[in-house]
């Protein structure tokens, strides 16, 4: 396995610390610690009530909204992220394939 570190950046937009938001945060923390433990995982929580201009910049409508900013392609998921981590990872296209494999797919 390659030692090159693939950085994963996840932005979660919430409107205040509602139960729904807490649920989404817990789910994400869980997968970062377990399923994505081998990667550098950057989880940013944005409270749109405190930083509405960030929501404006990314044109967020619903909360919670999760955006996988890195690696490309970006993915956007709305909702409190349910309960099944496998399903969530599949939707996010995570964990990322190794850099070698990624390179081989490039033209």
């Amino acid at each position: 396995m390659s030692t090159a570190v693939v950085k994963i950046v996840l932005h979660l937009y919430v409107a205040g610390r509602t139960p729904r938001a807490e649920r989404a945060i817990a789910t994400l923390r869980h997968i970062c610690e377990r399923e994505l433990a081998n990667f550098e995982c950057d989880l940013v929580i944005v409270d749109v009530l405190a930083d509405p201009q960030l929501a404006e910049a990314r044109k967020i409508l619903a909360t919670p909204t999760l955006i996988k900013e890195q690696p490309a392609p970006s993915r956007r998921i709305i909702g409190d992220l349910g309960a099944d981590p496998a399903e969530l990872l599949a939707a996010l296209n995570l964990p990322p394939v190794s850099p070698e494999a990624q390179l081989s797919t490039l033209p």
Binding site: P52, D80, G82
Partner: peptide, 13 residues
């Protein structure tokens, strides 16, 4: 992609 419950809190904000 929708997974679970949500609201339009961001739009309101």
């Amino acid at each position: 992609v929708v997974m679970g419950a949500y609201d339009l809190g961001a739009l309101l904000a």
